[in-house]
Design a protein around this nucleic acid. Sequence first.
RNA 1: GGAGAGUUGUCCGAGUGGUCGAUGGAGGCGGUCUUGAAAACCGUUGUGCCGCAAGGCACCGGGGGUUCGAAUCCCUCACUCUCCGCCA
Length: 418
Amino acid sequence: MIDPKFIKEDIEGIRKLLEKRGMTGVVDLDRLKTIDDERRSLIRKSDEAREKRNSLSREIGKMKSKGENADDLMKQVQVHADDIKQCADRLAELDAEFTDMHLSVPNFLDGSVPAGTSEADNPVVRTWGEKPAFAFTPKPHYDLGTDLDILDFERGVKLAGTRFYVYKGLAARMERAIINLMLDLHTKEHGYTEVFGPFIVNDDSMIGTGQFPKFKDEYYRIERDGLSLIPTAEVPLTNLYRDEILEGPLPIKITMQSACFRREAGAAGKDTRGLIRVHQFQKVELVKFADPATSFDELEKLTRDAEEVLQKLNLHYRVVLLCSADTSASSAKTYDIEVWMPGLDRYVEISSCSCFTDYQARRARIRFRREAGQKPELVHTLNGSGLAAGRTLAAVMENYQTADGEIAIPEALKRYME
RNA sequence: GGAGAGUUGUCCGAGUGGUCGAUGGAGGCGGUCUUGAAAACCGUUGUGCCGCAAGGCACCGGGGGUUCGAAUCCCUCACUCUCCGCCA
């Protein structure tokens, strides 16, 4: 959520933001402003009533301890008690509506984010490597994997349903190798601390990173226990320090490998074949808690950290900067890394690296102290995939396929597959 | 899963209806003393909200209730610990 002071002081700035993001109409800003004003005056009124009640009650206490009769005062207090109750009821209504709308206001965009109306307006900021040349027509990974009997989509469906799959032999081993390569790279060379935590989390966690309450349909929920399967390790990682004041130097950099579970609601018909869009996949996630002064530099570094995985695997990719309309609501700036998939004959998103400024930190109440004794401030949170393992496997398969329908092992994976 | 005990400020730990945001200790910070340090002593040390400010309000695990008034009483939920059971 954005700093509520902007609702009070600069509703027009928010209006411009919504326009830039193409989200006009998502929030009724006039209504939001009205509610906010009414809220504030109610809080004032209610606080005043409480003040009167409190002082009268103190009087009553004094009188009673002296054995005096306080019936008169007790009658007076009743008026204030009624006021308080009335204000509280009305305030509860307003707060609910206010919070709902407040949560719907997207994050401010960084100045470097280009205006745009769709993904067609996302500029490519750099490319690395080149599309590999094949003397034959490269197969998409799903055909290649099925032919080699290392990807089994039919049995995945038998076990769990559509968009599930089974890895056998080389595919299973190679994905494990890919994950190990990524974790080693980020922990040994990029300075991230490896974390391992729950794949199932409570609602507070889902709210903290913004999955709830707006996008509940996207996730698997275990109603009976009030828990949800994580759609990304961002959830346990970012919530690791929820409701805390961080001590020690920033940035804090952590990484975690996890399975991710997504309903892919609304994606019917898209990428229905293969490993690109599935209900369960593995991913190595990178998360940083940064000083607000340097958070956008940290985004550049985080993106480079993710890119390096593809460089190690010698896979051609490009980095695009998401335009105003394509940047997710909680992000201030996002780079997507898109890997080249020769079998699919297109680029596929394999990582999304974002700086959320204080938007998530405010929701999750993650703060730090610049110096001992000083007021706590909100940190800036960042995250990025480093990388999506299933899509990386698919990219390796497609890029390293040979004329006889086999898959060569990338140099960087050999030591993990011996 | 069963039984019991807990949940208070950075930490430990008092408080069982009234001037308690909360006694006391530890730690932190500032100071006195000292050649320096230790000790001793003095002071200070939570977060959020409303307000231009003065100031006020809220918070003693979460939510609800009783009461003029709740950290204190009642209900409910969550979590932690101990014992038993089960178990990779």
